[in-house]
């Protein structure tokens, strides 16, 4: 029983971070219909940013998101304006390859700067944990889960209650109609890519204290992000949140009851099943 509970808790905590990655991807897809294969690499850039801030300025990773979020937003907006924007309406395979190319550039630039050494960010609390009813909970993971939840709520509020947020949702639902309504669609795309990147970067910052950093780490998270967003329904933020937690738990529970070697297979099979039997995902389509 403890084993099950333990794996559920770890799964949910990790799932929170996954959700943040998935939400970023889903916003970008929703607004621009571009599958961003560089999503994991953007997350990796966020991790290095956190690493620099921590090692050279001594800023705690959880505090540093105040800096990481705006910087990553600008980075994403810049990528969108300079590259992705030119591909609006181009063949989907070319869009995919463009983002793959951008991902390659990001990871290899980082490798030139930082070498491909694994960087470990050791904070005083990196291996702290506390006990609840015999179940140990990692303190940094718990903190990052709370921050994730706060950011997600803030994002809901932004998308539902503000004018800009509603404009983004309108663009996601029907680009042409939104344009006819006088929404500046180009600006919304830049915003969406910026927000998506900021979220990926934040996720990177939040897992830094309990994880490690190397230039090629992006690929792992790109694949996870796809699974999460499809599971939740491409373009659905609630779906991505749910998808993140489901994937986190699925990984964690299957590692215990099947084997850690097969846990990723479980995730991909789950993914295919959803594609086949509920292709719109758990939360339907394009409803943000």
């Amino acid at each position: 029983m403890t084993v099950l509970l333990q794996s559920l808790i770890s799964g949910i905590l990790i799932g929170g971070v996954y959700a943040l990655i998935g939400i970023g991807l889903t916003i970008i897809f929703g607004v621009m219909r571009v599958i961003n294969f560089a999503h994991g690499d953007i997350l990796m850039v966020g991790m290095y940013m956190t690493y620099i801030l921590f090692t050279s300025l001594g800023i705690d990773p959880f505090v540093s998101i105040v800096i990481t979020i705006p910087l990553m937003f600008l980075f994403g907006a810049f990528l969108q304006k300079l590259f992705i924007n030119r591909m609006q309406g181009a063949l989907p395979q070319n869009q995919i390859l463009l983002t793959i190319g951008l991902g390659l550039i990001m990871s290899n630039t980082m490798m030139l700067i930082f070498t491909s050494d694994y960087k470990i960010l050791s904070t005083s609390y990196s291996s702290e944990s506390f006990n609840v009813a015999g179940i140990s909970i990692s303190s940094p993971l718990a903190i990052s889960f709370l921050i994730t939840a706060a950011i997600t709520l803030l994002l809901y509020w932004f998308l539902l209650k503000t004018d800009t947020g509603q404009a983004i949702r309108a663009t996601a639902q029907d680009r042409e109609a939104a344009q006819l309504m006088g929404i500046n669609v180009r600006w919304m795309s830049i915003l969406a890519f910026g927000i998506g990147s900021a979220l990926a970067g934040t996720a990177g910052a939040l897992i830094s204290p309990t994880y490690y950093i190397f230039p090629q780490i992006g690929g792992i998270f790109t694949l996870k992000a796809f699974v999460i967003t499809v599971l939740g329904g491409m373009g659905s933020i609630v779906g991505a949140t749910l998808g993140g937690v489901i994937i986190g738990v699925a990984e964690s529970v299957s590692a215990v009851y099947i084997s850690s070697g097969w846990k990723d297979v479980v995730v991909f099979v789950l993914f295919l099943l959803v594609l086949l039997f509920k292709p719109a995902g758990l939360m339907g389509k394009s409803r943000m």
């Binding site: 995919i96 699974v227 499809v230 070697g261 297979v265 991909f268 295919l272 594609l275 292709p279």
Partner: peptide, 28 residues
């Protein structure tokens, strides 16, 4: 038979997923 029910980006992702399942299976 799995992937051709899907179109566009979904097909791309499904094809990746199947190849990944093959890779992980070969590993295990």
């Amino acid at each position: 038979s799995i992937c051709f029910r899907l179109r566009g980006p979904y097909f791309v992702l499904a094809s990746i997923a199947v190849a990944e399942i093959m890779r992980l299976s070969a590993m295990n």
